[in-house]
């Protein structure tokens, strides 16, 4: 079977504007701009098979979100090979965009002034979902999350957890083959985190949706992803079973990802 995501030697570098501190530095920068190059993702190889649930973990600034942005076509790679669902993502073809969904914890697809159902109705047309399929999917997800009473409430009045549930429903209505999740549980309380995890597991197991999840919360990755990819300074440090990762590199329960990454570096176990 062809992999759903195939990436080879993927690199992304950004040009960053730098200036000396203070007013003088600002004035100087007006006359002479200085830029530095930041390599966000470096020579990255990745292969994900259909139906996998993969955790992408790493500390802040490791390059996880940049990688997701390249996989969804939002940004163009600097160099390297990338193929998602048989497409070059940054061409942003509609045929490609209809087959995936992306949910970013800190960014919303919902219309804040309107109700979730208004956004769902819009997505139905945007993705060309047939009425019957739309009804079936909506009922299924609404029941799964138990959010029937919130469908006609203005989005801006929903709590963070309720909003994230609606974001996930909006993303999954068209039955995407791949779901990219960037910190979906960020800021949620323990109960909402658990509900989101149960929902994602169900979607992966029952619907066969391939999921790539980036998260700071070890519990997200540990409970959902059989496979984990650890990223540090834009490089792949580990790619393998999640259980093995935690067995080998985690010393204490609840330890932060930064410590695990440091340990991987120290042990020279980069992938």
């Amino acid at each position: 079977m062809r992999p759903i995501i195939e990436v080879e030697g993927l690199t992304k570098s950004f040009r960053r504007f730098e200036k000396e501190p203070g007013l003088l530095g600002s004035v100087k920068s007006l006359l002479r701009r200085e830029f530095t190059e930041k390599i966000a993702v470096s020579d990255f190889d990745l292969r994900i098979e259909p139906g996998e649930f993969v955790g992408l973990i790493g500390p802040n600034g490791a390059g996880k979100t940049t990688l997701v942005k390249m996989l969804t076509g939002i940004i163009a790679p600097t160099r390297g090979e990338i193929e998602v669902l048989g497409f070059w993502p940054n061409k942003l073809e509609n045929a490609f965009k209809r087959q995936y969904a992306v949910v970013m914890g800190q960014k919303s697809q919902l219309f804040f002034e309107l109700t979730p159902v208004d956004t769902f109705g819009l997505f139905k047309e945007l993705y060309g979902i047939r009425e019957e399929e739309y009804r079936r999917n909506l009922n299924y997800f609404v029941e799964l999350f138990d959010v029937g009473e919130l469908l006609n409430v203005q989005v801006r009045t929903l709590s963070l957890g309720e909003r994230m549930k609606m974001e996930l429903i909006a993303a999954l209505l068209h039955g995407p083959r791949v779901l990219f999740l960037d910190e979906p549980t960020i800021g949620l309380d323990a109960v909402a985190q658990r509900q989101v995890r149960l929902f994602l597991r169900e979607v992966n197991e029952r619907q066969g949706t391939t999921i790539l999840l980036t998260s700071h919360y070890m519990e997200d990755v540990r409970s959902l992803c059989r496979r984990s990819v650890v990223v540090g300074e834009g490089k792949k440090l580990y790619d393998g079973e999640t259980d093995a990762l935690f067995r080998s590199f985690q010393r204490e329960e609840g330890e932060e990802i930064g410590l695990i990454v440091e340990r991987i570096y120290a042990m020279g176990e980069g992938a």
Binding site: K69, T72, G73, I74, L92, N94, K97, R98, V102, M104, K107, S108, Q109, L126, Y127
Partner: peptide, 12 residues
């Protein structure tokens, strides 16, 4: 601000 991505990922 980076939120233009919202328009890029929709099939329209």
């Amino acid at each position: 601000g980076g939120t233009f991505s919202k328009f890029m990922v929709l099939p329209a």
